[in-house]
Design a protein around this nucleic acid. Sequence first.
DNA 1: GAAAATACCTTGCATAACTACGTATTTGTG
DNA 2: CACAAATACGTAGTTATGCAAGGTATTTTC
Lengths: 119, 119
Amino acid sequence: MPKGAANKEFDIRWKSQIKKGLIEYIIMLLLEKQTFYGYDLIDKIRTMSHIEIAEGTLYPLLNRLKKDGLVTSRWQEMESGIPRKYYTLTPTGKAQIELMNAYFTEIGFSLKKIKEFQP
Amino acid sequence: MPKGAANKEFDIRWKSQIKKGLIEYIIMLLLEKQTFYGYDLIDKIRTMSHIEIAEGTLYPLLNRLKKDGLVTSRWQEMESGIPRKYYTLTPTGKAQIELMNAYFTEIGFSLKKIKEFQP
DNA sequence: GAAAATACCTTGCATAACTACGTATTTGTG
DNA sequence: CACAAATACGTAGTTATGCAAGGTATTTTC
């Protein structure tokens, strides 16, 4: 057990940086299973991963995915309540997920190798 | 097998984003095992992970770690060749690594859960 | 009928990776 | 022996993304 305390500000910054790209991946993994609307994605990810996603992060992100042809969206009028914008993964999005899965697997192997590395 | 091809530009951007924070973690994992100098870290990480780190990424990163008290550095004159700046993890750095390990473990569990999720 | 929750959105800031460049020394090659 | 490549450090400016803080509008709850 190290005696020094960790650097709290560094930790906050680092965790924010780690989310870059990761959130995009998680959202696509979920959209691979079913359609979601934005507000629901935030809630789903919070309960499944304890990762908090700000709305100011999510909505621009979904627009990027759409612009890049990875998802499509359609408005859904509710019988009661506020209309929701549902997102669906495109074939391009599905192809992209395969690349992401492969990259994550590779990162997993690399981290394992590095952690087991003996000088 | 999806018919659509993935979005190449998106993939390049995404892989760059995934590196954010990850490179910092990998470097600290290596420095936990032994001291390294910058140029050697690039080479070590390339061979152990196939992740390319630009020099313009590494040197500012090492300076940040130093500024945040996670590493110390000392110049080492070589008998032959260019002097090297060796980096060593501080107790603060070691404490930070434990937080990072815990966070990565949590992310691993979350991804597993999300991948196994059935609607 | 006021507050909270739902559901969407935008603007501006901070951070980190990258490209491209610069410096200096040493090693390899024709 | 000259010249290219490799070694080893560094900086400046660009770009992308997460986040805080703000906004609108409707619905539910107390």
